[in-house]
Design a protein around this nucleic acid. Structure first.
Lengths: 127, 127
DNA sequence: GCTTGCCTTGACGTGCGCGTGAAGGTTTAG
DNA sequence: CTAAACCTTCACGCGCACGTCAAGGCAAGC
């Protein structure tokens, strides 16, 4: 399939797919006229990238997973580097949960006109 | 006190304080030479802004609190608008907690080689 | 053969919030 | 006298994942 169809099936845009390629995450065969040609394997790869992004991983973080799939593994998360990324993200999420719980208590306390509780230093909590 | 001292006491920069002023959050008396002159009340205001930011509120969100203090109230969060901001942020935080909990379960499942669970659509979870 | 709609590359723009940097000048402190 | 602190305004940065536009090449239906 060509890039437009892949984009449609993956629910994204051609621009995003070309961007992934420029980042070395997605490779495409080329037909004689220069068009990119993809198969089901590529669709799966894009879906993997999307799934990883949806749990808050950056595009850079998806590299080990892509490499793992390229190396022939059944799933992208069976390689050590991928699992390390998972562990790192898990630690981030845990820190975020703790932080947000504190924030929540602060808000509840203020709404209840109680003493303000102390909110500790900042942590990045994204997506 | 002048802007440098206020910045130091509040643990911020003179640039940030001027920025707050440009946003209408902080007002200053001016001495004859044009220098900004602040008092303890202003320091308290800056600290309030910082506290609100630390629980994930934007500078815009701090406006009602500042207005409340300006209106002469003892604390910035005793006015209806301020409390509405708290409630809105609380709802955001709750959505974030739910989302991050799902993400956490996804990561744990993948790390345990179990079936991947579905992660729902994205929510902004910042600070 | 003409229109429509794919596709190509490349350079630059966007959004967002929260400031920061630089330039160029005046006042104060020691 | 000199360095540090202050003043103003305009513009720029940052992080990241793309979006937008430009200028043009193929393909397929009518």
């Amino acid at each position: 399939m060509r890039i437009g169809e892949l984009a449609k099936r993956a629910g994204t845009t051609t621009r995003a797919l070309r961007f992934y390629e420029s980042e070395g995450l997605l490779e495409a065969q080329r037909t004689s006229n220069g068009y990119r040609e993809y198969d089901e394997h590529d669709l799966r790869l894009v879906r993997e990238i999307q799934a990883l992004q949806s749990v808050g991983l950056s595009l850079q973080d998806t590299r080990p997973f892509v490499a793992c799939l390229r190396a022939g593994h059944e799933s992208g998360d069976s390689c050590p580097d991928s699992r390390e990324v998972y562990r790192r993200r898990l630690a981030e999420v845990d820190a975020c949960l703790e932080r947000l719980t504190t924030v929540r208590e602060f808000l509840l306390a203020r709404l209840a006109f109680q003493d303000p509780c102390v909110v500790p230093e900042e942590i990045q909590c994204t997506s």
